[in-house]
Simulated scan of single mutants.
Amino acid sequence: AAAADTGQSLDGAAGLRSRYTQLQAQLQDNPFGRPLHLDSSEGSSAVKGDIYAVLDHPFAQVRESLATPGNWCDILILHLNTKYCSLSNQGGKTMLRMHVGKKTPQDLRDTYRVDFTYTGGAAANDYFSSSMRAEKGPLDTSDYRIQIEAVQLPDNRAFLHLSYSYSYGMAGKLALRAYLATVGRDKVGFTVVGQGADGKPKYVTGSRASVERNTMRYYLAIDAYLASLSQPAAQRQEKRLDTWYTTTEQYRTQLNEVDRNAYLAMKRDEVARQQLPAD
């Protein structure tokens, strides 16, 4: 695999339009059942996932939703491992305080806190970008980046690029190795790396599989958020939770972790906890 570039990973407006043209075949014919292309790469101490997708929503609505930092906690909390998210302004910087943990209910004291700095990027009539970066993550991981950009298509829909990456030191590598040898042993990603004797696809494993699963979960959270906007405000939260779970279940091989009722109950509690002031 190519080395993960942990630096600037956005294409810019012209680059993103060019990428849209290049990816026509993959967007139209793929195993996702939607116009989506997923890439991942791994370097010696970094891993990265990229999703390119056509969003079935007007560009202006996508830009307004995703270029507003206040909406990101509503998006990020949909991910199984996000236990809490709050927005604040510190010294003129927009901060997203996130807690990550297990895929089951958890006391906040038992989770890892990750502080993201939110940066609005370019903003034009037909393009926008933004990024979130955290210097430190759990278990010797660092330089977490969630970057998004979108360009307006001729039919007024949006073409989105989501990039998710992080780096890890030696302790992080060992922790990852232990995880992949135990709990994560049978987990796979989306990239097909071969064919089994039974003729079925063999999927990528290891840290690339892990970053692919999480990039997909974040993408589906963005999509679920946008899908909820057609509902009255009071019903949007439930719509988001339901949509996120339903769409992840379309990719059961990679993303199935908990049953629907367990997910909904856990997330309702976590969303309620998010309304309380952080200690």
Rank of each mutant, 00 (worst) to 15 (best):
T6Y: 09
T6G: 12
G7T: 07
Q8D: 15
G33E: 02
D39L: 12
S41V: 05
S45R: 13
V47S: 06
L55H: 06
F59G: 05
V62Q: 04
R63N: 10
E64Y: 03
T68K: 15
G70H: 08
L76N: 04
H79C: 10
T82H: 13
Y84E: 03
C85N: 09
S86F: 09
S86N: 14
L87A: 04
N89R: 10
M95F: 06
K102V: 06
K103D: 12
P105M: 11
Y112M: 02
G121C: 14
G121H: 08
A123S: 15
F128T: 02
F128W: 04
F128L: 00
S131Y: 00
S131W: 02
G137F: 04
R145W: 04
Q147R: 13
E149N: 08
V151E: 10
V151S: 12
A158S: 09
G172H: 13
G172D: 14
L174C: 03
K187T: 03
T191A: 06
V193M: 02
A197T: 07
A197F: 03
D198T: 11
K200D: 11
V204I: 15
S207F: 09
R208M: 13
N214S: 13
M216E: 03
Y219N: 02
A221E: 05
L226K: 01
L229G: 03
S230K: 13
P232G: 07
P232H: 04
A233C: 01
A233Y: 01
R240M: 15
W244P: 00
Q254T: 10
Q254V: 04
N256R: 11
E257G: 02
R260W: 03
Y263W: 06
M266G: 09
E270S: 06
V271T: 15
V271N: 12
R273S: 07
